[in-house]
């Protein structure tokens, strides 16, 4: 592999955006996984598909409409789940299929715009612009600051809602905040792996890291490291061999997951 590829500015943008997204997805994903909300990222991503189609139809930059649609549907589904006592997985299923259904109908109405849709479905990290990179870095910065400032409240309400309430933590508000940040993260990450593979970035590095039996912060750091490794290696390999980055990144994460399971089954990790 030649180091020449590291001199291209599109590659710089791809790697910088990729690393930022890797960090963001690991951090937000850890809270989602521990709340048994692993597929929530997937559901928001699918609802954003409707938003993307809407943007393409209306001639607006599709990611803006995707942000709008995803955030609104994430908040609605959280409210519906609370109010009507629908289980997490069922509410995710409703959201997931509604987004795709809306998207398909809009595509049908417009007569189809398959090429653009394809890049949103499977990601196009090598095509991110300077503006995209700035947006990704800014959102990553803002969300990470919020997580650091509210770390105790986020962790406590994830660990046990009832006890967090008794400790005076505004659990409902924290729940909405997590869903809101997850919505922003998903749409921001669509450019890296696309709508279809987004939940892999939320879930796989975290379930891998959890197997190492460490505390919360170390688990988060491990997850971020696995994620960065998969994203950076995946982008480089996919460029060199001319294969899809999204698929390569996700397969690398699955490789780390399988490797960790192997180490664990040989008894080389602690009990947990």
């Amino acid at each position: 592999m030649s180091f020449e590829i590291l001199s291209f500015s599109f590659m710089h943008r791809a790697l910088i955006s990729g690393v930022a997204i890797a960090i963001l997805c690991s951090v937000i994903g850890l809270f989602l996984v521990l709340r048994r909300y692993s597929l929530f990222g997937d559901a928001i991503a699918h609802s954003s598909f409707g938003g993307i189609a809407l943007g393409l139809l209306a001639g607006v930059y599709p990611l803006w409409t995707a942000y709008g649609v995803s955030l609104v549907s994430a908040l609605i589904i959280t409210r519906v789940k609370e109010k009507f006592n629908i289980s997490g997985d069922a509410s995710v299923a409703v959201l997931l299929s509604s987004g795709i259904a809306v998207g398909l109908v809009i595509i049908g109405i417009s007569g189809g715009f398959t090429i653009d849709i394809f890049s949103f479905l499977f990601g196009s990290i090598l095509l991110v612009s300077v503006n995209d990179t700035i947006l990704i870095l800014s959102l990553t910065g803002i969300i990470l600051i919020v997580v650091l400032v509210l770390y105790r409240q986020l962790l406590y309400s994830t660990f046990n809602e009832e006890q967090a309430k008794v400790s005076g933590i505004p659990v409902e508000k924290i729940n909405y905040l997590i869903v809101f940040m997850a919505g922003l993260t998903v749409v921001t990450s669509i450019q890296l792996v696309g709508v279809l593979l987004i939940s892999a970035l939320f879930v796989i590095p975290n379930v891998t890291a959890i197997m190492y039996g460490k505390g919360f912060k170390q688990t988060a750091i491990l997850s971020i490291s696995f994620s960065i490794f998969s994203v950076v290696t995946g982008i480089l390999i996919s460029y060199v061999f001319d294969i899809t980055p999204a698929g390569t990144i996700v397969l690398l994460s699955i490789g780390l997951f399988a490797g960790t399971m192997g180490i664990k089954s040989m008894g080389l990790l602690s009990k947990n």
């Binding site: 521990l34 105790r152 962790l155 406590y156 660990f159 046990n160 009832e162 006890q163 008794v166 400790s167 005076g168 890291a209 959890i210 197997m211 039996g213 460490k214 505390g215 919360f216 912060k217 170390q218 688990t219 947990n272």
Partner: peptide, 28 residues
């Protein structure tokens, strides 16, 4: 609530929740 410490009957949590004793105590 700031003046109250509460110990629940059976603390319910995920068996593999990645938190140490230190994390749990510090959380409060």
């Amino acid at each position: 609530l700031k003046e109250i410490g509460y110990v629940p009957q059976k603390p319910i949590f995920e068996k593999n929740f990645p938190a140490t004793v230190n994390d749990i105590v510090r959380m409060s």
